[in-house]
Write a protein that binds this DNA or RNA. Sequence first.
DNA 1: CTGTTAGCGCGTTCAA
DNA 2: TTGAACGCGCTAACAG
Lengths: 341, 341
Amino acid sequence: MITIYDVAARAGVSPATVSRVFNGIKVSPERVVAVRLAASELGFVPNRNARRLRTSSSEIITMMIPDIENPFFTVMTRAVEDIARADGYSVMLCNTDEDPEREQEYLRVAVSDPVAGVILAPSSGSTKLDLAVERGVPVVCVDRHAAGPAVDTVVADNLMGATASARLAWEAGYRRVACISGPENVETADDRYRGWMSAYRESTGTEPPAELVVRTKYTVAGGEAATRQLLALPDPPDAIFAANNKLASGAIRALAAAGRMPPEVGVVSFGGLPLVLLVPAGVMVSHLPARQLGLTAATMLLERIRGLKGPAREVVLPVVISDEDEGFSLIEGHSESVRAL
Amino acid sequence: MITIYDVAARAGVSPATVSRVFNGIKVSPERVVAVRLAASELGFVPNRNARRLRTSSSEIITMMIPDIENPFFTVMTRAVEDIARADGYSVMLCNTDEDPEREQEYLRVAVSDPVAGVILAPSSGSTKLDLAVERGVPVVCVDRHAAGPAVDTVVADNLMGATASARLAWEAGYRRVACISGPENVETADDRYRGWMSAYRESTGTEPPAELVVRTKYTVAGGEAATRQLLALPDPPDAIFAANNKLASGAIRALAAAGRMPPEVGVVSFGGLPLVLLVPAGVMVSHLPARQLGLTAATMLLERIRGLKGPAREVVLPVVISDEDEGFSLIEGHSESVRAL
DNA sequence: CTGTTAGCGCGTTCAA
DNA sequence: TTGAACGCGCTAACAG
């Protein structure tokens, strides 16, 4: 491995001067040239580990998400990357797989690295951040809140959004609208479930019956199983409110398998489906501000990394309910929105 | 920051003993207890940078992909992560955005880190790997080949797969099948284009006309624009072979906008669409072995990291053409396939 | 089995 | 402006 000492020897200067050249510190022009020449002849590449150890700093932001295969989170990640890159940071992505243990382990790694900051979409409401907060590593939560010490958090307005989305089913003429939501103690799942309840009460004037609710993992398979269970009811629903895109996808697959495709049984998907080809009649889709969540979280994190002090901040982004499919414009060609922030 | 010296002092042992405890090296039981106690009382977390500097090793694998928002690559990434994690490695994901410059920059960072290894889906056929190869950082290419020094590579059989996929259109009764593929000099785009040509010749007995081919970026917008262009032809196609999932999605959107939805105009999507709700009649989808690509690449990389020498290896995975939608079983519950490797 | 010691490669004092 | 010297936190070599 080639070090600044090798370069220094070849350039006829001291190691300190080489270091200065590579850190943009004032050095006489002729020495700069000599150092650069020697470095490129030798193929010198600065060792980041040594640099990090010495300065105890890092240019890496750790992003932890519960499901790398869900477009919602990858769009969010892409947004974080766009903001971070503009400031010279790299983004290290970790997939917690909705597993609190795995999450803690990654957090431990991040803290012991130590990285410049962490953006975390907590796997559950009981995620502990003490490790990071104690060590002074800036953390921003996105999509969901964490337990423990208060940190900057940016979430979507799931309660309002879900209420408005679920309402679409009744407005479309469906009468008995069931709810499939994510696991208990997962904030988004709880909020969206409560949103459905509000819409139910408001639309029917009655209390939502427990049999119309299934809580399951945020997976396609979970959505399928839940739908089969609902269809087997003595008095089955004529529409399903699915709390995320994967559940909705599973619901529709199960309906197709049962020969009860939309619009016979309606489906509301709370969350967009990026590569979806055509949205069949009887399927209603509302779009989550995935990119905005990422942009905001990254911006807040960079502020903290730069030293911003003060109490934890909270941002709640609205969920736009519209027939417009804004999924693609959000995914591609988003340079303006980066600049806008 | 708390160091092994602090822990050593508190536990009444030497720093080396603390180090040994945290590295699983034989230490007397009572001292292990004392060290662990002191460490947890002090909230000690080992500093990985110091460790890496000392050992000049790292537990990080850099994964570089051209499009983080394409499920094809995230499924692949997930597979890499599963394999890497089982061996104690973390995966750092970098999004090159199909941009060679960005790719080179990330490569430079990876090499100067230095990471344990790199898995790269090259942005183009001219991607140079010299930087990494010279420094002895193991590299495996996946999905596409790179230029320059030969490295382990694992790809799908795009030529055969595309030929068989495009053939589906003629078999379904379509007569004039156009081709939308990715940029020139992107290997997958070239191979799939050639696959379509084979199928064309074979099915029609004539040479494919240039007007039926559009090469564009691998984006939804690219697919839309290309489709509009094809529809405007004096003698427009009655079906479209799209070389990847995003192009197919764009094609169908454009067809819908033009009021020529499938099955009026057929579409072949070379590559699966994970969260797709329902595949409309007239749309044919073939599934790429995304997960297998990732599993294989990760396995090969770990072998190299462990010191395997020998010439560069090449693996070509078959593309299965079937009506079965295996997308979801591949995405969820894949623990067996990890073990199988 | 354990402690002492010497660097890993770099950035940053302090003098000159 | 430049160079010499020190140490970031840790592990590996050696001696005991």
